[in-house]
Design a protein around this nucleic acid. Structure first.
Lengths: 127, 127
DNA sequence: TCCTTGTTTCGATCGATGTCGATACAGAGG
DNA sequence: CCTCTGTATCGACATCGATCGAAACAAGGA
């Protein structure tokens, strides 16, 4: 069903109005919930953070597998979930696969969560 | 697995360093994941948005139940999940129960997600 | 007092998800 | 060519979670 395998470029977070400003539509909520659900696991959150904070903005899977006491397939599964949520992208370079955080996604999420009057003018408000 | 169910009182988001700045610790990831998991459902996300955007900053359950094609117990369940995640709080006033978004939580989440250099002076502890 | 309305809790059902081992695929190097 | 290492997919299992109806609890009004 929702097996839209190809990480469609628009699969990220599209909506931009903060959720404290007006009620989310069903569509917006579904889109956002997919991303938050992907981040709703400690392992995936650490993976995301490890990739995002890694030197050069990308990390090799071989490096990520070491950090956890989990099997390779499990790490691969979590990376796939993050990939299909539109949070990260992987690229094979030679023997190893490198993952990096897709730009803009985290910023848009932060915009949605930020209170309207937190002193931050909606940075990327593409409307 | 770790069934640390009890809604620990300090169950809000405590950590503040953006996840792109340095890898999350296991504790921080678990704490954050609990909140993101609570937001990883379209119904809960819409509930949160409805409450946050409602006039006066609070909404009555009777108003929320109307919006969805779900039974009362189901709405109550989702509100409980949001409550135990430290996102909202409910108060009974007479016949009705009013929910409001706990202040600061969304802002801290936005800080964690925000890229360090997105044009936003790492507000850090906004207050 | 009883009854009516609003909200939560309880118990059950069924699909979704995290985890693993086994296996398949992709490159590098003999 | 074959083999070795790194990564992804497959199939299976156990647990979790969303949803419902029934029932309990809370407050107000007849």
């Amino acid at each position: 069903m929702s097996k839209q395998g190809p990480p469609s470029p628009g699969s990220g977070v599209e909506c931009c109005s903060p959720l404290v400003a007006e009620p989310l539509s069903g569509d917006q909520a579904g889109d956002l919930a997919r991303v938050f659900k992907a981040m709703g696991d400690p392992v995936r959150l650490r993976l995301l953070s490890l990739i995002a904070s890694h030197a050069g903005g990308e990390a090799c899977v071989c490096d990520l597998t070491d950090v956890f006491a989990l099997s390779g397939p499990t790490i691969s599964h979590h990376l796939k979930v993050l990939r299909e949520a539109g949070l990260i992208a992987g690229e094979r370079r030679g023997t190893w696969v490198y993952y990096r955080v897709l730009p803009g996604v985290l910023g848009r999420l932060a915009d949605v969560l930020a209170p309207v009057a937190t002193g931050r003018p909606a940075a990327g408000a593409a409307r």
